[in-house]
């Protein structure tokens, strides 16, 4: 076996342990060094396993998707404890979001199509009034899970943008079913975001 044959044979017998390989390695310092170096690489490779930590964004996105898909079901304690700072007001934030959502559903499902334009314009301040609670949401996140602040801020920005966009389309085409559905979806996402923040803050 010569050097070229040895190198080719390493694909089949990786550690150079066959009789022919060993005979060549004893006589050839260069090939011997090659095999040692390849073994060093193999040994070091094992240390790369599970070495990296994903950013918190990954779990946050997974959780968000799981809630959207209904795979996570709310499991609240029967008697939740309240933080001294927020007290009963702690529940007002998600309740406000849920009320907003319920109002949106009621207005859009029950109204006659020719009244849609007027009602849609009324819904704009409703969406804006929900913005007043965004600061509360972010404060809650900062208090309980500061590492998630950036992700929540981004999610909140995106969902508010979706609401604005969908609202704009509804204003232009009040009879557009798809647009109305998009608006409802956007409100639902926002409600879910509040729900997630509140779940995290529970003990």
């Amino acid at each position: 076996m010569n050097c070229v044959e040895l190198q080719q044979s390493l694909a089949e017998v990786e550690d150079g342990s066959s009789l022919e390989q060993r005979a060549h390695l004893r006589a050839c310092p260069a090939c011997s060094a090659l095999v040692n170096e390849l073994n060093l690489i193999v040994a070091a490779a094992g240390e790369l396993q599970a070495a990296e930590e994903p950013s918190p964004r990954v779990w946050n996105s997974i959780e968000f998707a799981l809630r959207q898909e209904g795979l996570i079901r709310p499991q609240r304690p029967l008697v939740p404890s309240f933080s001294a700072r927020w007290g009963a007001a702690r529940w007002l934030v998600p309740m406000a979001a849920m009320l907003l959502l319920a109002l949106g559903i009621y207005v859009r499902r029950e109204s006659l199509p020719n009244q849609m334009a007027q009602q849609a314009s009324v819904a704009v301040p409703a969406a804006n009034s929900s913005d007043l609670n965004d600061a509360d949401l972010m404060q809650e996140v900062v208090d309980n899970e500061p590492a998630m602040k950036t992700q929540y801020a981004e999610n909140l920005r995106q969902v508010n943008e979706s609401i604005r966009d969908a609202q704009g389309v509804v204003d232009e085409s009040p009879n557009d079913e798809d647009a109305r559905r998009s608006l409802m979806d956007a409100y639902q996402q926002k409600s879910m975001l509040f729900q997630m923040a509140m779940d995290r803050s529970l003990p």
Binding site: W59, I62, L66, I72, R73, Q75
Partner: peptide, 12 residues
């Protein structure tokens, strides 16, 4: 399997 959020996070 029952939809427990903490369990999902625990597995993650």
């Amino acid at each position: 399997k029952l939809g427990d959020a903490e369990a999902f996070q625990g597995l993650y």
